[in-house]
Computed example of a mutant assay.
Amino acid sequence: MTAGDSSGRLDDDYPACTTGRAADMLGTTQVFLRAIAGARLITPLRSEGGHHRYSRYQFRIAARAREPVDQGIPIEAACRITVLKDQLEEARRIDAEHRRTAEVPSPTAAV
């Protein structure tokens, strides 16, 4: 998929910024963005000219990965931490949903 395939959508998934612009906006380096892409934390799309493009959603992920890197944690570990935090958040959301469902009395239980 290329950036041109997004049908002009301006949403969180629209690949709007080049690597240089994304790095500037995040206050990081292009090397950092390439490293987290290499670790498969994010997968930037490519423009028709072959340049990497990053979305707002990818900015948020990169910013979250940057926090542990700024604390001295290696990039690979920071990427893994970011993924694990997302998985934990999703598990908690699912658990909360199951708990809400379990708290609702079934119509036949009242008989």
Results as ranks from 00 to 15, higher is better:
1 M>V: 04
1 M>N: 01
1 M>Y: 04
4 G>M: 13
4 G>L: 14
5 D>W: 09
6 S>E: 13
11 D>C: 07
11 D>E: 09
13 D>R: 11
13 D>Y: 04
13 D>C: 01
14 Y>G: 06
18 T>A: 06
20 G>A: 11
22 A>I: 04
24 D>Y: 12
28 T>G: 07
28 T>I: 11
30 Q>G: 15
30 Q>T: 15
32 F>K: 03
33 L>F: 07
39 A>W: 01
40 R>Y: 02
41 L>E: 02
42 I>C: 00
45 L>A: 09
45 L>T: 07
47 S>V: 02
50 G>L: 04
51 H>M: 02
51 H>A: 11
53 R>W: 11
54 Y>N: 02
55 S>D: 09
56 R>M: 09
58 Q>Y: 01
60 R>F: 08
61 I>N: 03
61 I>P: 01
63 A>M: 09
66 R>E: 13
66 R>D: 12
67 E>G: 00
70 D>T: 15
71 Q>A: 09
72 G>K: 14
73 I>D: 04
74 P>Y: 00
76 E>P: 01
77 A>R: 02
79 C>D: 07
81 I>K: 10
86 D>R: 14
87 Q>F: 09
87 Q>N: 09
88 L>Q: 13
89 E>P: 12
89 E>Q: 15
92 R>D: 11
93 R>V: 07
95 D>W: 13
97 E>H: 08
98 H>T: 01
99 R>G: 03
100 R>N: 10
102 A>P: 02
103 E>W: 04
104 V>K: 07
105 P>V: 08
108 T>H: 14
108 T>S: 14
108 T>A: 14
